[in-house]
Amino acid sequence: MSKTVISTFSSRAQAEKAVSDLRNKGFEHEISIVAKDESGTTAIDRNSEMYGGDSITDGTAAGGMLGGIAGLALGAGAMAIPGLGPVIAAGPIAGLFSGAATGGIAGGLTDWGIPEDRGNYYEGKLKEGNIVAAIKTDDNKVSTAASVLRSHGAQDVETH
């Protein structure tokens, strides 16, 4: 049975380090990242660390909002969410938000087992400019995912 570990980051650097550490611990396609795209730019930096480049360059993925994170998970894409504005999502969770144009982020999170009230909370955190990380994984990997997130400064770490 799978569960979702969800958290927020107040900085891009923290989120990038957490995602990198998760990948080093064997998490690949389970990692999803969602953040506001303040610039409206959605080009993904193919020279980011994910793609073997030397560094994460400024102003490339989501106008620098996510830097290399956008390439760290499959399915990166951008969309406009009413009441939230432009959002970039990377990873399996991005597919959930393709139908979120009317239901918002919270509605998409319920498909991952996040209760509606907590989905609304995380949507609010996105509005404030935080980055939301979600890892959908097997029960036996949940504590590892949560531990890695916390070790990199994640806030609001929950398992559902």
Rank of each mutant, 00 (worst) to 15 (best):
Gly91Gln: 02
Val87Met: 10
Ala76Asp: 03
Ile69Tyr: 07
Ser147Gln: 13
Gly59Cys: 09
Gly107Glu: 11
Gly95Lys: 15
Glu158Phe: 09
Tyr121Asp: 12
Gly153Cys: 09
Lys25Gly: 03
Ser147Gly: 15
Val19Gln: 00
Ala90Cys: 12
Thr144Val: 15
Glu16Cys: 01
Pro92Ser: 10
Lys25Trp: 04
His152Glu: 06
Ala43Gln: 14
Phe27Cys: 03
Gly153Met: 10
Leu22Ser: 02
Ala61Asp: 13
Ile44Met: 13
Ser147Ala: 13
Asp54Trp: 07
Gly67Lys: 05
Ala100Phe: 02
Glu28Cys: 00
Gly71Tyr: 06
Asp45Gln: 07
Ala13Arg: 14
Gln14Ala: 13
Ala18Val: 00
Leu72Tyr: 10
Gly113Thr: 06
His160Gln: 03
Phe97Gly: 00
Ser7Val: 08
Ser7Met: 09
Gly83Arg: 07
Ile131Ser: 10
Lys3Cys: 02
Ser55Glu: 13
Gly119Thr: 10
Ser98Asp: 08
Thr159Ile: 15
Gly91Met: 10
Gly26Lys: 02
Gly99Leu: 11
Ile135Ser: 02
Ala15Leu: 00
Thr57Asn: 12
Trp112Cys: 03
Pro82Arg: 13
Val142His: 01
Ser11Phe: 11
Lys36Tyr: 04
Ala15Pro: 05
Val142Gly: 00
Val142Pro: 04
Ala94Asp: 09
Leu66Lys: 06
